[in-house]
Amino acid sequence: MHTYSEHLKINKNSWDAASERFFGRTALPDYGPYAPSENQLQLFGEIAGKRALEIGCGSGHSIQYMLNNGAAEVWGLDLSSKQIEAAKRVTGSNSQVRLFESPMEENPGLPDNYFDVAYSIYAIGWTLDLSQTLANIHRYLKKGGTFIFSWEHPIHSRVIFDNGSAQFNECYYEEIPALHKAWKPQPAIFHHRKLSTYINELVSSGFMVEKVIEEVEWPAAARGNETTWYSDLKANYFPATMIIKSKKL
């Protein structure tokens, strides 16, 4: 059984290897596969003048979205050094941006009660310690601050299609870390959690859940057949993406 530190190292190496493949993918205003966009949902409201923090900032395209919409400051952290390098290229030399190479479970020096909004686009589910990560985010936010995140819907990885029939291939209730079956090119540790776990951990960390979104938005072009991880066929039966908006009490 690997330790926490070993799991972090596995995931850092994996994301460094996958960085180029995810350059610019799944970034605001998009929340994820088959999900309505921020242009439709307007979850953030007015961004201009706000201090924002991105958890798992990836290649920096969501940070650039925030800047384009008038954010006063945008800070980002990511486990992968390759992703941080990409984010620096995307956002350029900008005094409004601060980037940290760090696991989300650890505080690399971010201030308490500083940010108006925190967000995470398809990254929060990679945390190895959800409770600690949410406690950190709660501490970074001002009172009344908003936390919005999207992630793969917990039901999605539990179901496969075999000859057109949907079947559970893993137990939905089992919440243990394991290698992600679809992850390439190197293994990464993925900790499956129930939807209720995300909601209950938010509440326990001092957040009030304001909205949970599971609606499906169909892309202009088909994503693929039943053999792909995200597909039109799967989206006919269950959502690929969940989005949760909450507020620090």
Score class of each variant (00 low, 15 high):
Gly76Glu: 05
Lys9Leu: 14
Lys194Cys: 06
Ala48Cys: 11
Ala52His: 00
Cys57Ala: 03
Asn39Tyr: 15
Ser196Arg: 00
Glu73Val: 05
Ala18Gly: 13
Trp15Pro: 06
Tyr119Leu: 13
Ser204Trp: 05
Ala72Pro: 00
Gly145Ala: 09
Ile213Asp: 05
Glu54Cys: 02
Gly76Met: 07
Val90Arg: 12
Asn107Ser: 03
Ile189Cys: 14
Asn94His: 14
Asn163Glu: 11
Ala71Arg: 02
Val203Phe: 01
Ile121Asp: 01
Glu174Asp: 13
Pro185Asn: 13
Ser150Gln: 07
Glu174Arg: 12
Gln167Asn: 04
Lys82Arg: 11
Asn169Glu: 06
Pro111Phe: 01
Thr146Ile: 10
Val97Cys: 03
Glu85Cys: 07
Gln42Lys: 15
Arg98Ile: 10
Gly206Val: 07
Cys57Lys: 06
Arg98Met: 14
Arg89Met: 15
Ala35Asp: 08
Thr146Arg: 05
Ala27Asp: 02
Val203Ala: 04
Asp129Met: 07
Thr227Glu: 14
Val216Trp: 08
Asn11Ser: 06
Leu130His: 09
Ser205Asp: 14
Gly224Leu: 06
His156Leu: 11
Ser93His: 14
Ala240Val: 05
Leu53Cys: 01
Trp15Gln: 13
Ile176Glu: 08
Leu67Glu: 01
Gln40Pro: 09
Asn13Pro: 02
Ile47Gly: 07
Pro33Val: 13
Asp16Cys: 10
Ser80Ala: 12
Ser5Thr: 12
Gly60Glu: 00
Leu141Tyr: 09
Ser204Cys: 12
Gly92Cys: 06
Ser246Met: 04
Val74Asn: 02
Ile10Leu: 09
Ser5Arg: 08
Asn107Glu: 08
Ser246Asn: 13
Leu43Ala: 11
Leu53His: 00
Trp126Pro: 06
Lys9Ile: 10
Tyr34Asp: 12
Tyr198Met: 00
Ser37Leu: 07
Gly92Ala: 11
Lys247Trp: 02
Pro36Met: 09
Lys184His: 12
Leu99Glu: 03
Glu170Thr: 09
Ser196Leu: 03
Asn107Thr: 03
Glu54Trp: 01
Leu130Thr: 08
Asn236Thr: 09
Asn107Ala: 09
Ser14Arg: 03
Lys211Gly: 01
Leu110Gln: 05
Leu8Gln: 15
Ala48Met: 06
Ile63Met: 05
Gln186Cys: 10
Thr197Phe: 03
Ala222Cys: 07
Pro187Glu: 13
Phe149Ile: 02
Gly24Lys: 08
Leu53Glu: 00
Arg25Gly: 02
Trp15Thr: 09
Phe190Ala: 15
Lys9Thr: 12
Ile189Glu: 15
Asp116Trp: 10
Asp162Leu: 06
Ala123Leu: 05
Glu201Lys: 10
Phe161Val: 10
Gly58Lys: 01
Phe115Ile: 13
Pro219Trp: 11
Pro177Val: 05
Ser165Ala: 11
Tyr173His: 04
His156Asp: 07
Val209Ile: 14
Leu202Lys: 11
Trp151Thr: 10
His191Phe: 14
Pro108Ser: 04
Thr227Asn: 12
Ile55Glu: 00
Ser80Asp: 04
Gln132Asp: 09
Glu105Met: 12
Ser120Phe: 00
Leu134Thr: 00
Ala17Trp: 10
Tyr31Ile: 02
Ile213Trp: 02
